[in-house]
């Protein structure tokens, strides 16, 4: 048995450099199903790069990422895109919703790409928006939503395809303390309900404290791992 056995998402010996600047220097991570993990570290420690590698957005220079035992680097670009859409939910710092689409259309988009009919896709999207407390804002465009509402819509978009794992990059970074706390609660509870694993990249130790386990990065290396209950 290795520590990666049974993990839903693993990164093995991940190296990544941008020009002459190394961002990751041999990082190993394993995320168990349903587990909630915080990745912390100072600016430039490689947190976001690790998240982008785990999401298959960025390819590592060496090492590999596996989702449920399947290596992402063995997949075609088309297959990787589909994995990101269906099996990985990505939540980003500013929500980053399409400004021209309404909240419900933003959430329904991944389902439409999966070939679902528009009414079905929008019904499912409305369901998620209701669950996350922004059902009454479903037909509003992102510019008319508050930061907290935008983040809830982004969380709904990340969860609508029932992914195995949700990766969140500074999900509360653009929000005030109270709104950020609420958004985080929504994210934690929603992933717990669906059984999806949650990986949150943050430099905020209060956010990290909500997670079961913590991985601290420094200069592209894992500096410390906080185990559950520690």
């Amino acid at each position: 048995m290795t520590e990666h056995d049974g993990a839903v998402l693993t990164g093995t010996a991940l190296h990544k450099s941008f020009g002459a600047t190394p961002a990751l220097r041999g990082v190993d991570v394993a995320i168990a199903p349903g587990e909630q993990v915080a990745v912390t570290g100072p600016s430039g420690s490689g947190k976001s790069t690790l998240l982008h590698c785990l999401a298959g957005v960025t390819s590592p220079d060496s090492g590999f990422v596996s989702l449920a035992g399947h290596r992402l680097d063995s997949l075609s670009e088309h297959q990787r895109t589909r994995v990101r859409r269906v099996r990985i939910g990505l939540v980003l710092q500013f929500g980053q919703l399409v400004p021209d689409l309404t909240a419900v259309e933003n959430v329904a988009l991944p389902l439409l790409l999966e070939g679902r009919r528009r009414p079905d896709a929008e019904q499912a999207a409305r369901g998620w928006l209701e669950r996350l407390g922004v059902g009454d804002r479903a037909d509003v465009r992102p510019l008319e939503l508050s930061g907290g509402e935008q983040q809830r819509v982004a969380i709904a978009r990340g969860l609508v395809t029932s992914p195995d794992v949700v990766l969140a990059d500074e999900p509360t970074g653009a929000l005030d303390t109270v709104t950020g706390e609420q958004a985080l609660q929504v994210l934690v509870e929603a992933t717990r309900e669906t059984g999806a694993a949650l990986v949150v990249v943050t430099h905020d130790h209060r956010v990290a404290a909500h997670m079961e386990r913590g991985i601290a990065l420094r200069d592209g290396r894992v500096e410390l791992v906080r185990e559950p209950g520690a």
């Binding site: 982008h52 999401a55 957005v57 088309h78 895109t81 589909r82 994995v83 990101r84 859409r85 269906v86 990985i88 939910g89 990505l90 980003l92 980053q96 399409v98 988009l109 991944p110 790409l113 978009r157 990340g158």
Partner: peptide, 9 residues
């Protein structure tokens, strides 16, 4: 970029 990252081809 976020659209592509979230799985829009």
């Amino acid at each position: 970029a976020a659209l592509v990252a979230t799985g829009v081809p």
